[in-house]
Amino acid sequence: MKRLHYIFYSLALLVFPARADSIPVDERDMKAALIYNFSIYTTWPEVNSNSFNVCTFEGDEENISASLLESKKINGKPIHFKVIRDVADIKACQVLYQEETRQTYSSKHSQLLDKLAILTISEGSLQLDNTSMINIKLENKKYNFTINNQTAKQQNLQLSSKLLRLATKVY
């Protein structure tokens, strides 16, 4: 009888796993993890710098968990999180993240982006057709994303088939 008790409780332990999925994730951590994943599934023509630079414009940096990103490496290069103050500095970036709340960027900004192999990621719905290659969107408390593969191809960036498959829409 005593042994039966132990067997019952041991089985109970096995069938009661921790369900981490149900725990909501902080928005800043989620965005950092998504940027990291998008970077894994993207191929750049070549990266000359010693670090892999993820950039944001001033004001957007607080929307991403920088420490989470900086604990990781992409293609063996440590991720460096940079806040861009001068538009010309985006030359050093491999990824550029911006929020939709940010209105704009001058023609100088778009011209620069047109020439550079920078994976552009935005949150929101408006910027997709303009410059961003990946657009993330929060719907029903979960993130989904769309891809503008045309722009990515023009900049010689190759997004993996896995990303294209998971995207809710590919332009």
Binding site: P24, D26, E27, R28, M30, A32, L34, Y41, L68
Partner: peptide
């Protein structure tokens, strides 16, 4: 969060910050 695959990541609920 950076250890799990992207499918699992997208299935997680988010608390807006």
């Amino acid at each position: 969060l950076t250890e799990i695959d992207i499918e699992s990541l997208l299935s997680k609920e988010v608390i807006t910050a």
